[in-house]
Every structure is written in C-alpha cells, then in structure tokens.
C-alpha cells in the first residue's frame, strides 16, 4: 500500500525525519509511537503530501503522492483541527465531505446514524458550528468524516487524545473492526501505549526521526514499550522542543 524510500526532512539543520525504507502492506494496522519531537506528525504530513521532503519519496498504491492526486480518492486522514472547516455545522461538513465522494445527503445521514453511540449526542443537531465544539468533539467530527469516506487507507494522528474514556474504547473497537472486517489499512499514532498495542498488529517506534523498532504486536509488546519509554525518562537530559506540536 505504502512504500517509503530514503525519506528525509530537515528543520533548522536538524534531521527530524529519516526513514530509509518502510513498507506498509495492504490491510495492515500500524501504530506509530514515540516521544514528542520524534517526527510522527512530520512523517504523516509527508505521506499526505503536505510538506516537501528534503529527499526521498512516498509511494502510495504504486504512485508517488507528490504531484499526483489519485491517492486522495482512497485515503482519509485526520491529523488536527486544521483539517476541519470550523465555521460549518458538523452536518454541513459531513455533507460536504460526502459530496466529494459522490454520496447523497441521504447516504450520509444513513452512515451517521450508525455512529450515534460514538457521537454520544454531542455532535449532531446541537446547533453549533464546529469551532464551538470542544477539542474532543472536534476530533470526533474529524474521525467520523474519515470513516464516512469509506477509505482504503486511514491515517489518524493521536485519535485517543482529548476524548473521553468511553469513546476511546468505542473508537478502539471501530478501528479494529474496519481493519479486520473491511480490510482498511490503518496508520495511527498515539501516546497511549495500551490502546495502540491493543488496536495495532504492528508497532513502529520512532526516536529522533528514525524508526528504531518495528515490532509485530504480541503479549509482551506493551511491556517492551513501557520499558523503552521508562528508560527514555532518565536518559533525556536536554529539553526538546517539538517543531510540529508546539506551534
């Protein structure tokens, strides 16, 4: 599905992403973990052709993402609120996104009715613009709009952040189900190690722009990751400022 080769991104003379080779197969569920500044969001943005890499390229379904637009037909992503049109009501936004994929409003309404639990009565028919929703609810709108697109590739950046525990658990089940039952390739980053090991079959651990571990999830993965991050705690001596998340 995705092939990355020699991908490098430099900010202020610091190599923030350096991925010589990465292959993500169709139908895989991949989790990306790493401390702030490890380069997760930057990697996501390069996969989505939002920033230009210094070198290397990202190939999606056999075609480079840069300079092509076909990948947009089957890729749905939500990285941050910058993906939402915040002066629309959630309904208007869903209709707009659905319309881009040739779905009628009835289609969209049908689909949204399956998300009633996920929305928990906080999103639809509340008479609010997206900008008036809380961060967690905005994130729900973003995630729901991704699912609405019936993608083959789903990319979410920290989907578990800002949302309540019940919704986190529901989201986990939804992500597992679209991956296992519909074969959607999922690429998710998170700081919540137990969630990510629960949802993903493969974990990529990033540190300073490099993927230093590529693990198939098993019963000991969580412990292994907790070990790594606990060690990291004592080693980190200088404060790192994250280019992407600290704007």
């Amino acid at each position: 599905m995705i092939t990355i080769s020699n991908l490098k991104k430099i900010y202020n003379n610091v190599l923030v992403v350096n991925v010589p080779q990465l292959e993500i197969a169709k139908g895989e569920s991949v989790g990306l973990v790493g401390n702030n500044g490890a380069g997760k969001t930057t990697l996501f943005r390069m996969i989505l052709d939002l920033i230009r890499p210094e070198s290397g390229e990202v190939i999606s379904n056999g075609e480079a993402v840069a300079g092509h637009e076909n990948w947009k037909n089957y890729t749905a992503s939500y990285l941050d609120e910058g993906f939402l049109i915040d002066y629309l009501t959630p309904e208007e936004y869903f209709y707009f996104i659905g319309g881009l994929h040739q779905q009628t409003q009835a289609h969209v309404d049908d689909f949204l009715s399956t998300l009633t639990d996920f929305f928990n009565g906080e999103i639809l028919k509340k008479g609010k613009y997206i900008r008036d929703l809380s961060k967690g609810n905005q994130s729900k709108v973003g995630i729901a709009s991704c699912l609405l697109q019936k993608p083959e590739l789903l990319m979410l950046d920290e989907p578990f952040a800002n949302i309540d525990p019940s919704t986190q658990i529901r989201l986990k089940n939804m992500l597992k189900s679209i991956n296992k039952q519909h074969g959607v390739t999922t690429l998710i980053s998170s700081h919540d190690l137990s969630h990510i090991t629960d949802v993903c079959d493969r974990i990529l651990l990033m540190e300073k722009g490099r993927i230093i571990k590529d693990i198939a999830t098993n019963s000991s993965t969580l412990a292994e990751l907790e070990d790594y991050f606990a060690v990291g705690q004592s080693v980190i001596s200088s404060l790192q400022i994250d280019e992407e998340e600290n704007h």
């Binding site: 989505l48 052709d49 939002l50 637009e69 947009k72 037909n73 890729t75 992503s77 990285l79 941050d80 609120e81 910058g82 993906f83 939402l84 049109i85 915040d86 996104i97 881009l100 994929h101 697109q149």
Partner: peptide, 13 residues
C-alpha cells in the same frame, strides 16, 4: 488558512 490542510488532503481538485 485554518483548514487549508484539510482542503489539500481531501478529494478536491
């Protein structure tokens, strides 16, 4: 500007 990223990654020519 606030949702430009969204316009870029969605299925919009």
């Amino acid at each position: 500007a606030a949702h430009f990223d969204g316009l870029l990654v969605n299925k919009i020519k």
